[in-house]
């Protein structure tokens, strides 16, 4: 089985970090993986996206053009990438920041008020992880234990307190029924 996943948003929203967590989860499960960032020269605010391929086979082109799964963190990426999702694919989008509705009937689109959920729970800037939680709930890709391991691997000791917050964001995303 091969999953081609695209995560997209503005720089600073945690697009690359969320992609990295997926990549590490896959690493712990012994999969073939590629993680490819794409961004401009800006540190924050520019368009940013991240291609993650997870497979049992060696990965050819690492650039995801027709994702099976899309996480869209803002309006421009929702509009740009929803049309590229494979038929039967799934979209996870932050409805707190996206007004548009999904006009495709051949994909499943999960609109989650991720920014609102994160803010209501003192998890500012956690919208990326909330959406990741929803993705995990709907795909069953990885267990929460694996996600915790990936978080531990990617969190410096000085920020260790954020691991529990991020696990809470994962749980909130998983529980959300919209």
């Amino acid at each position: 089985m091969t999953y081609e996943i695209l995560l997209a948003g503005f720089g600073g929203q945690g697009v690359l970090f969320a992609g990295k967590l997926l990549a590490y989860c896959a690493l712990f499960e012994g999969k073939e993986i590629s993680w490819l960032p794409s961004y401009g020269p800006e540190m924050r605010g520019g368009k940013c996206n991240c291609s993650v391929c997870i497979s049992d086979e060696p990965i050819g082109s690492p650039k995801v053009l027709e994702p099976d799964l899309l996480i869209a963190l803002n309006g421009p990426s929702f509009e740009a990438f929803v049309p590229t999702v494979k038929a039967g694919g799934k979209v996870f989008a932050d409805s707190s920041l996206i007004d548009a509705a999904c006009d495709r009937t051949d994909i499943d689109c999960y609109m989650v008020p991720a920014t609102q959920i994160a803010d209501d729970n003192n998890l500012a800037k956690g919208s990326n992880i909330v959406l990741l939680g929803k993705l995990l709930a709907e795909t069953g890709l990885f267990s929460t234990d694996t996600v915790r391991k990936a978080l531990e691997k990617n969190t410096p000791a000085s920020r260790a307190h954020t691991i529990d917050n991020n696990m809470k964001a994962i749980a909130l995303g998983m529980e959300y029924q919209g």
């Binding site: 990549a23 073939e32 993986i33 993680w35 490819l36 960032p37 690492p62």
Partner: peptide
């Protein structure tokens, strides 16, 4: 730039 920026195991 692609090989430089991408992560793989």
């Amino acid at each position: 730039g692609l090989l430089g920026q991408m992560m793989e195991p």
